[in-house]
Design a protein around this nucleic acid. Structure first.
Lengths: 110, 110
DNA sequence: GCAATAGGATACCTTTTGGTACTATATTAA
DNA sequence: TTAATATAGTACCAAAAGGTATCCTATTGC
């Protein structure tokens, strides 16, 4: 649904959130672990985590009093699926360009 | 540079801007053409176009008093390159999962 | 030249966003 | 059971974002 794709794109629009994803790609982390990596309060980081979660870019599982955050592929898939549409356009543009070049090569006298 | 990737992600974070890109994938358009497709004033659309341009997702060329907006691949490439890093993680996660499954199959007595 | 057309720039308004401080809840360890 | 730990939630604030109205500039056609 449109809601989800919007949440995913929105989540990726902030540099701190993208950085969090990079950290999580190295290892799963608690919110305290993540907060240590930034100059932002835990409450601020928590807001970012909520947004990443709603974009399905991370998921959280509880372990005792800890909550382990880890990467979730669903949001990334949503994004790449949307972008795939443009890859198609991209190819078309490339072949148009190649056609133009080929055309030019055969019409050097015009 | 970090600046550009930020501009590109920011540009994709708004649903109107993503919709504009879809329209432009069908055909190059003037700002008037684009404005016809939305319930937003030309000035509003112009702001979106500026943001898309700074994210290198579109480019503009002047033709007389008209300005033709068209898709630009550089910004899309910036985005997909960033995401490609996670594809790698993705594969690792998948193979970890497969390892775990295989492991489980051989240790059914534990 | 001049009216019409195509578009750019900006001041202004409202809502959203990124951040903090503070408070509250649940689990663990002694 | 109680102090420490790990985290959640919320009220609040400043800045940024999305939108409009208005005004300005440049090209075109007669």
């Amino acid at each position: 649904m449109t809601l989800n794709i919007q949440h995913s794109f929105k989540a990726l629009a902030d540099p701190t959130r993208r950085q969090i994803l990079v950290h999580l790609s190295q290892q799963d982390m608690t919110i305290a672990d993540i907060t240590d990596q930034f100059d932002i309060t835990r409450a601020g980081i928590k807001k970012h985590l909520n947004i990443l979660e709603s974009g399905k870019l991370i998921s959280v599982k509880t372990r005792g009093r800890e909550r382990i955050n880890s990467l979730e592929t669903e949001g990334l898939k949503t994004i790449t699926d949307w972008l795939a549409y443009f890859d198609q356009f991209w190819d078309e543009k490339l072949s148009s360009l190649q056609t133009a070049i080929a055309n030019n090569e055969t019409k050097t006298n015009e």
